[in-house]
Design a protein around this nucleic acid. Structure first.
Lengths: 244, 244
DNA sequence: CGGCCCTTTGACGGACGTCAAATAGCGTGG
DNA sequence: CCACGCTATTTGACGTCCGTCAAAGGGCCG
């Protein structure tokens, strides 16, 4: 059977969606916002299901809509004419693919499915309207935009000035931290659906070299990846390897 | 004599500042905004002059203030424990160092002076207040925030997936385009105060290698740098080298 | 004239890429 | 249930882009 998708919403609303418990959807719908409305935000499309390795959103589609990942992992990608791929970020369940798209009219980017993905698009104008009366949600959005930019800056520093092993260690820590925020990390083990090629394309390296690095990390008792799970064996050593 | 600073404002206001003609300051003060106010925005500090190679803003200083470059070139930098430097962007005259700092309470970054720099800080709260009644200026700010993020994304792609020569060519084109917007590019020649070490640290390379690349470009009749000026010899070849 | 950056040059080294082929998983179909 | 195809992982030999090290000029300013 194909890799399972988390329980899908049955209607066209978000009722029953697992992503309500995490990320921005949680902030939107419930998290301690005395100014939150009980109803659902304006939804413009049915939820879509996309199998792994396929395109979730096309850059040109996002002119008037704000894309959201409801379940599964995505990858924001850029392709060069040569066919090379650079991954810019991994949107996780409950997250806007790119929070700045709420404000921007600029060009967006393609998004691919790492795992099977359920996704939605919201009407940008309506999202903006909904923000107006809800300062705390607006603040959360701003924070997320800033975080998106900061993550890119960190990635620039990684690609510009850090060795391959350090980059890998930092990516792992970054993902664990984000999954932790989303209540998706338990103990030292996380779901880790990324292929070695994803890691390579996110870090400006090649799959072959990533493979060697992952083996080094396993041999050194730092972490290991098996069966789409990542298990941290020695958190201290991992932080050391990441210079963090 | 030291490299000259453009005409400085004499009082504590922006009256007479050359940067009024360019960039965000222009948008703020005059550019076709029927909702612009004739007065000056709220200024919290006298203009400061900083000699080349010194720190213009410290990351920790920017908690409540929004830094602006009035004259000269800056460099937003990050240092690793090893002492390695990565340059994230080059703020130009009339630009906010980082437009997103208007909204963000997050951590900022150090800014160094590439040339001698005149700079100012604005009170963040007052800048926000001023935006409220001026939708066009607000829109411009959002656009700049988006552009800031997009430039970082482009840099990630450069550092991750492009060869050194391509990176250099793209940096040159990027700077020419931005200087053009600011009316600071005339013909195929621009002021180019960057040292080879700046280019290296912006592109994740080393000064020695940058030196070799610049010579290749000169020998190939693409562009040349001399006396802090960059002269494009063959725009077509330059675009070709940049894959743009 | 002296000091400080910056640029330039050359020899050498290493991190990471490329190529190729074997192996392992995993889902599909007979 | 095995066969098949596809994709992902693994391994080894080899190559190259770019870094490191070191030293010798330049330009600018005091």
């Amino acid at each position: 059977m194909p890799a399972e998708l988390p329980q899908s919403a049955t209607g066209m609303g978000c009722t029953g969606c697992a992503a309500r418990a995490v990320g921005l959807c949680r902030a939107w719908l419930s998290r301690g916002l005395e100014d939150s409305v009980p109803g659902l935000p304006a939804i413009t499309q049915f939820e879509r299901a996309v199998p792994a390795r396929r395109l979730v959103f096309r850059a040109s589609e996002c002119r008037d809509y704000v894309p959201v990942i409801c379940a599964g992992w995505g990858a924001v990608v850029a392709y060069l004419p040569s066919g090379q791929r650079q991954i810019l970020s991994f949107p996780l369940p409950g997250e806007f693919v790119s929070p700045s798209l709420i404000f921007a009219d600029g060009p967006a980017r393609d998004v691919e499915a790492v795992t099977p993905v359920r996704c939605r698009t919201f009407d940008r104008t309506k999202v903006r309207e909904q923000m107006i009366g809800r300062p705390k949600f607006l603040k959360k959005i701003f924070e997320d935009c800033f975080e998106e930019k900061e993550r890119l800056a960190e990635l620039v520093i990684d690609l510009g000035r850090r060795r391959a092993e350090e980059r890998v260690a930092r990516l792992v820590l970054h993902l664990m931290q984000r999954l932790g925020k989303h209540d998706m990390a338990s103990g030292g083990t996380i779901d880790f659906p990324l292929r070695q090629a994803h890691i390579a394309d996110a870090l400006g390296l090649t799959p072959v070299y990533i493979n060697q690095i992952l083996q080094n990390f396993r041999d050194d008792g730092i972490f290991e990846i098996a069966n789409r799970k990542l298990r941290v064996l020695d958190p201290v050593k991992l932080h050391l390897a990441a210079n963090k």
